[in-house]
Design a protein around this nucleic acid. Structure first.
Length: 347
DNA sequence: GACTCGTGGGT
DNA sequence: TACCCAAGAGT
């Protein structure tokens, strides 16, 4: 007689589950913020961002008063910036239409921007408003292995099958603990690499996974290499010149030193701003990977003395020791290089 | 349905 | 190194 998956997962969760995560609280607002942060982002990365975010914006009311620029600043470095734009939009909806109370019904939660089926299920179930299955990366991996599902389906069809399976194994009682336990199991036992099948609580439930059988590999995707000129300008007040990114979708709304795809475009910009007389203090280069692209940044650092010929806007300068706008990680890297060189120069 | 969106970590 | 994946959703 095989034990049921739900009982086994719940027993295991009671003993080994991650119950001290900071978003294990009775507040749908905080659960919402954590669930958005956790999309495609590992727990250890999220924790410091979550703590800082909740400290500054402890409820819907404080959040709904924040500007998008404020929110991009606190999200800076976490990635997938559309998430925080959606949080901002959702906060306005909740403030205007739900009287600053996070909605309780699954359908209302699902309507909010940035919230799909898994996130809506997680928020409403963890909040005690519903008892729904989820289908995140952990649950997908567990189901694929447990039921030995062939990876020959089209993606949409596979998702349908996996959702059915997830609903099938998800119990109507203690649903919150079950879906949390399932994710914990995926993260700590049924891992992507080197799964610990010997200690797995649902092995005895009829798991069909055989770790020794090699899985077929996906088709390799080509990685684009992109070369970019990054122009870091520092003035005599230890301020850096930054512009808001307004083109494309990547890093849209964050702030950066000017970037150029070619030397001639950079030359034109230098000419238009009366900067051609400047020589770089030094140069550096580094790479920054973005999913299927690798940016190779060639950085030139300029020092600008008080120079009235220069036509850069006076509004675009930010104190290096306290930059109060959101930056992409690549600019952090570039500024870290500057700071380390600057400190050496002062020794 | 394929593609995009960031960054950190693992192999 | 080059590639994969992580509490996915939107276009």
């Amino acid at each position: 007689m095989q034990s049921s998956i739900s009982e086994s997962v719940l027993d295991w969760y009671d003993k080994f589950g991650r119950k001290n995560l900071p978003w294990k609280v009775d507040d749908p607002y905080k659960i919402w913020i954590s669930e958005i942060m956790l999309q495609q982002t590992q727990v250890q990365t999220v924790i410091p961002y979550y703590l800082k975010f909740i400290k500054k914006y402890p409820d819907i009311k404080s959040l709904s008063k924040a500007s998008l620029d404020d929110l991009l600043l606190i999200w800076s470095g976490l990635g997938y910036y559309t998430r925080i734009k959606n949080i901002h939009a959702a906060s306005q909806i909740i403030s205007n239409h739900y009287n600053d109370m996070f909605p309780k019904s699954f359908d209302e939660i699902l309507m909010l921007p940035g919230i799909g089926r898994t996130t809506a299920s997680a928020i409403s179930t963890f909040s005690g408003f519903s008892n729904r299955a989820i289908l995140d990366g952990n649950v997908k991996r567990i189901l694929l292995r447990f039921f030995n599902i062939n990876d020959t389906y089209a993606k949409s069809e596979l998702d349908k099958i996996l959702w059915k399976k997830s609903e099938f194994i998800t119990p109507p009682k203690r649903t919150s603990d079950f879906i949390q336990g399932l994710m914990d199991l995926g993260a700590t036992v049924c891992k992507r690499t080197q799964p610990d099948c010997l200690i797995c609580p649902i092995k005895k439930c009829g798991c069909l996974y055989e770790p020794d059988i090699k899985q077929k590999k996906d088709i390799k995707k080509t990685i684009k290499k992109i070369s970019t000129l990054l122009t870091v300008i520092i003035n005599q007040h230890n301020q850096v010149y930054l512009e808001k990114i307004t083109t494309g979708k990547l890093w849209l709304g964050l702030f950066s030193s000017p970037t150029f795809n070619s030397q001639s475009l950079k030359n034109n910009w230098m000419l238009n701003n009366n900067l051609v007389h400047l020589d770089p203090m030094y140069e550096s280069s580094f790479t920054h990977r973005v999913t299927n692209k690798i940016y190779h940044f060639n950085v030139q650092y300029y020092f600008l003395k008080n120079d009235k010929k220069v036509s850069l806007s006076t509004k675009n300068w930010y104190n290096l020791s306290d930059i109060n706008v959101g930056l992409p990680r690549y600019l952090d890297k570039a500024l870290t290089i500057y700071r380390s060189k600057h400190e050496k120069d002062n020794v």
